[in-house]
């Protein structure tokens, strides 16, 4: 399979706290990978490193063989490395349609135009309508994002991600905060992603992980302690100790 993304020996420390320690992994075309680990393991930090929000102290990132370690956030996005946020980051005062349309127009390199129509351009409109319909958001198209419930905002995060036509898509807990009856829409949307893109999902919901992932990465204290099939993850001794153990501790504490 074609290798799309590679992290090689990534390390980062905040003062004395080592949030990433010598992390290496690859994402190939068609990958569906879950990144799991206890709270504070450094999952979101790793995503922030991948997107360029943080610079690693050590190590390199490559995309399709090119070193992108020094690239800005925007340059990485233009290469097809796209993320969604754990806590929604949307254009709050714009409408749902505007949010998705901006992503579409940016992908198609028409956001430098100063006199043409924007969200209502017929080709742009057709595209955001399709994406919003897929996520069941179409009737909210002309509502301001700030008016919407948090769960609906999570779906818009995903809609923006889809609109960018990613090659590598990083989903930071896409189902967290989404009402139970809307959660299947997220899985359905992820199922319908083009099969040749790589998806890395941070997720706590193990049901979702087992449904989605063909491969699991387990992060604990900034170190990658397991990489393998979902069926093997619960059997792994170190994972049980680091990750599932914390749940057991939490349960016995409560």
């Amino acid at each position: 399979m074609t290798e799309l993304f590679k992290a090689r020996n990534i390390s980062l420390a905040f003062g004395g706290l080592r949030v990433a320690q010598d992390v290496s992994f690859k994402l190939a075309a068609g990958d569906r990978v879950a990144l799991i680990g206890p709270n504070g393991a450094g999952k979101t930090t790793l995503v922030n490193l991948m997107t360029g929000d943080l610079a690693p102290g050590n190590g390199r990132f490559t995309m399709a063989g090119d070193d992108i370690t020094g690239f800005s956030i925007a340059e990485r996005v233009r290469r097809g490395l796209v993320r969604t946020f754990q806590t929604t980051r949307l254009f709050q005062t714009l409408t749902v349609a505007d949010n998705v349309a901006l992503a579409i127009m940016q992908r198609r390199r028409i956001t430098r135009r100063v006199f043409s129509a924007a969200t209502e351009r017929p080709d742009v409109r057709a595209e955001w309508l399709e994406i919003l319909a897929l996520l069941g958001l179409d009737r909210l198209a002309y509502r301001q994002v700030v008016e919407l419930a948090y769960g609906q905002q999570r779906l818009i995060e995903l809609a923006i991600g889809l609109a960018l036509h990613p090659k590598v898509l990083l989903l930071d807990e896409p189902a967290a905060g989404v009402p139970h009856d809307e959660a299947p829409k997220i899985l359905e949307a992820i199922d319908r992603l083009p099969p040749d893109i790589a998806v890395l999902m941070i997720e706590h919901d193990m049901d979702l992980v087992f449904k989605f992932a063909k491969r699991v990465l387990v992060l604990a204290a900034g170190r990658l302690i397991f990489e393998g099939a979902p069926s093997d993850v619960t059997a792994d001794h170190e994972v049980r100790r680091a990750y599932l153990g914390s749940y057991a501790d939490a349960r016995s504490a409560s």
């Binding site: 925007a74 233009r78 980051r89 254009f91 992908r107």
Partner: peptide
């Protein structure tokens, strides 16, 4: 509205 979101769509 959100400049990080704007950069995250490639701007």
């Amino acid at each position: 509205d959100d400049d990080l979101r704007a950069r995250m769509i490639g701007v």
